[in-house]
C-alpha cells in the first residue's frame, strides 16, 4: 500500500534520506523510530508529496506520488503531531470541510456525528468551535477526518506525543480499529512502548537510513528498547 523505493532526499549537502526502501501493507501498523532528524518526517512528507524526492520513488496504492500527487492523496490520511483545525468552526464543520475536500460530499449530519462518536469525542463538544479543544480532542477529530476520508493508508507523525496516557491509549485503540478495517498505517513515534503495543512492525532510522526492521511479535519491550539504544550509540 505504502512503498518507498531507493527514496532519497537531500537539502544541499545535507542528506535527509539516503535510499529508503520500505513497504507497509494493508493491515500493517508500521512504527518508525529514530532520533529527531533521523528522516521520519521527511519520509512522511515525501509520501504526501509535500517535498519532491531527489531520487527514488514513493508509491501509494501502487501509484507514483510525484506523477499523480492529487490521486495518491485521495488514498491517504495525514495526522500530524498537532491536528490543526479551524478555530472558528465547530468540530462538525471542520470534519465536513475536510471530508468534502477529500472528495466525500455525500455524508449526512448523522454520518458526521457517528464519525465523531466512533473516535470518542463527547457528544456535546461536536457543535463547539474547536478553538476551545484540548490536544486530545483535536487528535480525535483528526482520526474522524481519516475515517470520513475512508483512507487506505494513514501517515501519522508523532500523533501521541504530548497526550496523557489515557488519551494516548484511546488513540492507539482507534488505530487498531482502523488497521482491522484494512488500513495501512505508517507512524513516526518516540514512544517505544506504544510502538511495541500497537505496531506489528518497527523500523529504526538513523541519519536518513533505515538501520533495522523488527516484527513486534518476535521481540519483548526490553528487546525493543535495547536494540533501539544500541543503534543510537
Amino acid at each position: 500500500m505504502l512503498e518507498a523505493i531507493n527514496l532519497r532526499k537531500s537539502y544541499g549537502d545535507h542528506e535527509a534520506l539516503q535510499g529508503l526502501n520500505l513497504k507497509v501493507n494493508a493491515g500493517d501498523i508500521y512504527c518508525l523510530l529514530g532520533a529527531n532528524g533521523a528522516g521520519k518526517t521527511t519520509t512522511i512528507n515525501l509520501f504526501l508529496n509535500f517535498v519532491e524526492p531527489t531520487s527514488g520513488t514513493a508509491r501509494v496504492n501502487g501509484v507514483d506520488v510525484t506523477q499523480n500527487p492529487l490521486e495518491t492523496k485521495r488514498y491517504l490520511a495525514y495526522i500530524p503531531e498537532q491536528v490543526m483545525l479551524y478555530g472558528n468552526l465547530t468540530a462538525i464543520e471542520n470534519l465536513e470541510y475536510f471530508a468534502r475536500l477529500g472528495g466525500h460530499a455525500g455524508y449526512s449530519a448523522a454520518d458526521y456525528r457517528s464519525f465523531l462518536d466512533r473516535v470518542g469525542l463527547q457528544a456535546n463538544a461536536a457543535n463547539l468551535r474547536v478553538r476551545t479543544y484540548s490536544k486530545g480532542m483535536r487528535q480525535k477529530v483528526g482520526v474522524a477526518i481519516a475515517l470520513a476520508k475512508q483512507a487506505k493508508a494513514l501517515l501519522l507523525d508523532e500523533p501521541t506525543s504530548g497526550l496523557d496516557p489515557k488519551a494516548s491509549n484511546e488513540f492507539s485503540a482507534l488505530l487498531l480499529q482502523l488497521r482491522n478495517d484494512g488500513a495501512a498505517i505508517l507512524m513516526a513515534t518516540h514512544d517505544l512502548f506504544r510502538a511495541k503495543e500497537t505496531g506489528n512492525r518497527i523500523g529504526i532510522m538513523k541519519s536518513g537510513r533505515l538501520v533495522q526492521e523488527l516484527s513486534t511479535d518476535e521481540v519483548s519491550h526490553a528487546d525493543v528498547e535495547r536494540i533501539y539504544l544500541e543503534h543510537m550509540h
Binding site: 504526501l48 492529487l70 491517504l76 500530524p80 491536528v83 490543526m84 483545525l85 475536510f98 475536500l101 472528495g103
Partner: peptide, 14 residues
Amino acid sequence: ESGTIRQVMSMGIS
C-alpha cells in the same frame, strides 16, 4: 503559521 495548510493540502486538492 497555524499548520492547517498541511492538513488541507494532504486532502488532495490542487
